[in-house]
Design a binder for these strands. Structure first.
Length: 506
RNA sequence: GCCGCGUUGGUCAAUCGGUUAAGACGCCUCCCUUUCACGGAGGAAUGACGAGUUCGACUCUCGUACGUGGUACCA
């Protein structure tokens, strides 16, 4: 049977890096087995629906190269792919469960539920559940007379449908990552399956849709482990147990410092992105930064995420998507959470920039330069420059500093690095150098260097002591590739201008 | 509180009963380079604790501690 997995985010905001990793692992597993990867939008909570979030999720996946085979934007045989559009499909199953005695109607109002939690609260049980201990004290089809239930239903009284968990059963299932996991059914509450607005909860929807969409392997975060027994029972009660997907509960990505899982707030606090791409909150107008805008290559982002929770077993850390697909295996996915390390993330990006070709880098670098108002000329020149400076760039934004001086005069010069050792002799050297440059047969790196060194010898000044001032005159600071190389690329005219400008300031 | 899951350097991690317990990031030192990087060489730094099984335990079992997740008509 062909492998089918799904990534099922809810469109409530930006796509968190943990979500991307879940998608990535599903994708890797699926592609390794030549299966189909499905995007399903879990928009059953209408209160939390956020405009634009769905398209954003699709864009993020595309940017990462985690491309779905089916989804709301790519309808396949199992459309629709938005749960809100499948609303009518769920209720019959909930009713079937009621019919079979595995679920029941509950008419408790939110206030009554709160009252129950307060009444039964004790130091030993701070959060009472709606379960076998309490359900017979609530207002539901188990406690009401059948005709009373009928009457309430007929009168259109708001109700939910809850699963009726057994009191004494050990629910066991196999997790691809953790092996056998057991829970006692009596400790699990009677989760709501169908909400008062007619929408299913996640619990019902995930089971029904995974079944209808023929999902074979279900990847999700570890936070779902506690409710897995509900899902297991649902597969069983609905009579689909033989079609149940294999579960894989992925470990969490944790905060680098304190405790707990990484949240979008941590990014702000610690100064790194948490979302894949920029996300602006429509309500608050707040902008949350994304890895893409921060200057990450998608290859590096994906590579970094892959290694956060999985290891090939080899001494290799740099993997392309294709390499990940062929190397990936569930046996090597870790059980424990990993603290996110932005320094390591940057290292991945640096490696990917160094190993990428100029052609590959060009469009992305160009975008960042244009945003910084750097007048990039033709692509060939930029390509040459990228080749020269890419070793020095960790994030794409670093290209702004590393290439800016090739296109425009430095905004400021690091004169402090020249002044202490500056002298009349050196000033004389540069003045003479400018005269020499006028007579040069060409303005190639080698010619410039020879002329520079010959003059230094004549003036009896060490070349090394002149190179730094020259660099600062051209570049503005202590960075960049070889000075003579830079001189050639910016051209004679610009060199004369910049040298003259600095000479005037010293 | 209860339940689930987890625990190798600061971080990511290899090891699938027998190793001087890999490697990477970060940090430090040196070399290269009279810029910044890249590159190269080296260094500091690890099995939570306690029992048990075993000739032998980081590896298996149990307990404790700690961490983490859940305990919603949210996913």
């Amino acid at each position: 049977m062909s492998v089918r997995t799904r990534f099922a985010p809810s469109p409530t905001g930006g796509l968190h890096l943990g979500g991307v990793r879940t998608a990535l692992y599903s994708y890797l597993y699926t592609k390794k087995h030549h299966g189909q990867f499905v995007l399903r939008i879990e928009d059953t909570d209408q209160n939390r629906y956020v405009e634009g979030a769905e398209q954003y999720i699709i864009d993020c996946l595309n940017w990462c190269g985690i491309t779905p085979d089916e989804g709301p934007h790519l309808p396949g045989d199992y459309a629709p792919y938005r749960q809100s559009e499948r609303k009518a499909d769920y209720k019959p199953y909930a009713l079937q469960l009621v019919e079979q005695g595995h679920a029941y109607y509950a008419f408790d109002t939110p206030e009554e539920l709160e009252a129950m939690r307060n009444n039964f609260k004790s130091p030993n049980n701070p959060s009472p559940q709606y379960d076998h201990n309490t359900r017979m004290k609530m207002k539901n089809s188990l406690t009401l007379l059948p005709e009373e239930t009928e009457r309430l239903l007929a009168a259109q009284t708001p109700y939910v449908i809850r699963i009726k968990m057994d009191e004494n059963e050990v629910i066991t299932f196999q997790d691809m990552i953790r092996g056998e996991i057991s829970n006692e059914s009596g400790l699990v509450d009677d989760k709501v399956l169908l909400k008062a607005d007619g929408m299913p909860t996640y619990h019902l929807a995930v089971v029904v849709d995974d079944y209808l969409m023929k999902i074979t392997h279900a990847f999700r975060g570890e936070e779902w482990l506690p409710s897995a027994p509900v899902h297991i029972k649902l597969w069983e009660y609905l009579g689909w147990k033989n079609d149940m997907p294999q579960w894989a509960h992925l470990p969490l990505i944790l905060k680098p410092d304190g405790h707990g899982k990484l949240s979008k707030r941590d990014g702000d606090r610690l100064g790194f992105p948490v979302f894949a791409m920029d996300w602006q909150d429509a309500k608050t107008g707040e902008m949350m930064q994304g890895f893409r805008e921060r200057g990450f290559l998608p290859e590096a982002f994906v590579n970094m995420l892959a290694m956060l929770g999985w290891h090939s077993g080899e001494e290799k850390e740099l993997f392309s998507m294709d390499e990940l697909i062929s190397s990936f295996s569930m046996e090597r996915v870790h059980k424990h959470g990993a603290k996110f390390d932005f320094e390591k993330a940057k290292w991945f990006n640096h490696e990917w920039i160094k190993h990428s070709t100029e052609e590959h880098l060009l469009p992305q670098v160009k975008k960042h330069l244009q945003q910084a108002n750097i007048p990039v000329g033709d692509d060939d020149k930029l390509s040459n420059i990228i080749a020269l400076v890419k070793d020095r760039c960790t994030l794409l934004h670093d290209f702004v500093q590393q290439t800016g001086y090739f296109y425009q005069s430095p905004a400021s010069y690091d004169l402090e690095s020249i002044q202490p050792k500056w002298s009349a002799e050196k000033k004389d050297f540069f003045e003479s150098l400018m005269l020499r440059f006028k007579d040069l047969p060409d303005f190639k790196m080698q010619t410039i260097e020879e002329s520079f060194k010959a003059l230094a010898a004549e003036k009896n000044i060490k070349v090394g002591e002149l190179q730094l001032p020259f660099r600062i005159m051209l570049v503005g600071g202590k960075f960049g590739p070889g000075v003579f190389q830079i001189a050639e690329l910016i051209g004679k005219e610009a060199v004369e201008m910049r040298v003259g400008a600095v000479l005037g300031q010293l």
